[in-house]
Design a protein around this nucleic acid. Structure first.
Length: 425
RNA sequence: GUCCCCAUCGUCUAGCCUGGCCUAGGACACGAGCUUUUCAAGCUUGCGACACCGGUUCAAAUCCGGUUGGGGACGCCA
């Protein structure tokens, strides 16, 4: 029975790199029908905060990661760590230095780890200093509490970032001294920013929360994260989480550090948005609008607009920005477009003529609007585009977007005429 | 400085384990074209990589060694 864990420290939001670690542990456990546990590493009472823990759990759930069993809090197990240290002290494997309890590292020993991703990694204890187990303030050090708890939770596999490889021999020493069986280790390469430096805000965000806020879908983020360091072989790219669980194989893990590419994430998010039905997108978009402080429109109109725009946007936030003219008169206007298409007097004249023809029609269907537009162009000896562009600019404030006639239909005759008149005045 | 990990297009990668099927495949991005009222989407297409040097071998992206380069770790942080 496979048992893995994710051990967040509630000292900040869920980092994208941590999310990836959680994800791989989760997929590994689910693939083999094992358990995925949570351990809260809150030994640093000063920096740990309840609200961060809440955020982390919320974000994990949002990503589709669930856990088995109640999370274990290290802050509640100090006595266990002290007891274990006490035992090592009695066994002569450790010594005191003031209030602190320190583990004696035997020199000249080779320690070999058979890493699930890297293969054999060899260390020598000559390179390892004596290890503090219990600090002067009575709290345990990371490596010590980690070992005690992983053994307590009967963890069988530890999948974590490469930044932990040097901790591994130290932890193995603890397992040995405590007479415990070490688990299997697998270290995955870290995610870097495009420039090769540590991932930071300027690479597009470091916390899951930021991506959620920008309107990325959890499925897309998870898919992208999965492919950053793992490949099912072949040319597969769009792999839903359920399928990843089914086909996951450690052999597909790469040992190479990967750069986080926001462009590809955006593309993938666009693919996920496009693949969804309008009805599925509806509640997500409403949530996004609310989050961005925009008034939430009627479902009917919103649904129409979603169908018009879902293949044109990469994020939900982008959707909200691009479609603002459908849901109120306080929408963004492209200055350059206004200069080009609305400033010239010919444009104003075309708009006036087009508006008066539209006014005579009853209702405003896309087909009828198109017919009227083409007829007007023909009558005036203009190209259709000379009517279309100023009109789009007049009713949407933008030079790009959905097809003009669909846009007009969705917006409704009244608004269309009102805006055309205003622009031609 | 010491220890450890890594090295295929700008980026993510397939291939590498089990050398020949690789004049190295796919995707993102970028360029061109088609379509078109714009922007997308879609289709076609172009650009573009085995870090370097040795070795093993009839044959190396694939195996071995070294160099260089990148990353990580050396905390009474986690």
């Amino acid at each position: 029975m496979i048992r893995v864990r994710f051990a967040p420290s509630p000292t900040g939001y869920l980092h994208i790199g941590s999310a990836r670690t959680a994800l791989f542990n989760w997929v590994y456990a689910r693939h083999y029908g094992g358990s995925f546990l949570l351990r809260i590493e809150d030994t640093d009472m000063a920096r740990s905060e309840q609200r961060f823990l809440g955020e982390i759990l919320t974000d994990l759930k949002w990503l589709g990661i669930d856990w088995d069993e109640e999370p274990v809090h290290q802050s509640k197990r100090f006595d266990v760590y002290r007891k274990a240290a006490e035992d090592l002290l009695k066994a002569g494997k450790a010594y005191r230095e003031g209030e602190a309890c320190i583990f004696k590292v035997e020199k000249g020993r080779a320690i070999e780890v058979d890493d699930m991703i890297h293969g054999k990694i060899a260390f020598n204890t000559d390179d390892i200093k004596d290890q503090v187990m219990i600090k002067s303030d009575g709290s345990p050090t990371y490596n010590f509490s980690c070992v005690i708890d992983d053994a307590f939770l009967k963890i069988t596999h530890i999948i974590r970032g490469d930044d932990h490889v040097s901790n591994t021999p130290k932890q193995i020493l603890f397992y040995e001294a405590l007479g415990l069986m070490p688990p299997k280790f697998g270290h995955m390469p870290l995610i870097m920013g495009q420039d090769g430096a540590k991932l930071s805000k300027r690479h597009g965000g470091v916390s899951v929360e930021e991506y959620k806020r920008d309107g990325f879908l959890p499925g897309a983020l998870v898919n992208y994260l999965l492919l950053l360091g793992w490949s099912p072989g072949g040319d597969r790219e769009i792999i839903p989480l359920e399928e990843a669980v089914r086909i996951f194989d450690m052999k597909g893990m790469t040992g190479v550090q990967a750069k986080f590419d926001i462009q590809k994430l955006r593309w993938m998010n666009g693919e996920y948005i496009m693949a969804k039905q309008g009805a599925e997108l509806l509640p997500l978009i409403k949530q996004q609008m609310a989050g961005m402080g925009k008034p939430v429109p009627q479902d009917g109109l919103l649904l129409k607009v979603i169908d018009l725009y879902k293949m044109r946007v990469k994020t939900l936030a982008e959707f909200v920005q691009l479609t603002d003219h459908f849901f109120g008169d306080d929408y963004s206007v492209e200055e350059k477009g206004r200069e080009k298409y609305l400033r010239p007097s010919e444009s104003k004249e075309v708009l006036r003529d087009f508006a008066s023809r539209l006014e005579k029609m009853d209702g405003l269907s896309a087909a009828a609007a198109e017919e009227a537009c083409r007829k007007l162009a023909e009558d005036k000896g203009l190209k259709a585009g000379q009517v279309i562009h100023p009109t789009r600019m007049a009713i949407s404030g933008k030079t790009s977007g959905a097809g003009l006639f669909e846009m007009m239909e969705a917006l409704g005759k009244e608004k269309v005429l009102e805006r055309m008149r205003k622009a031609s005045a």
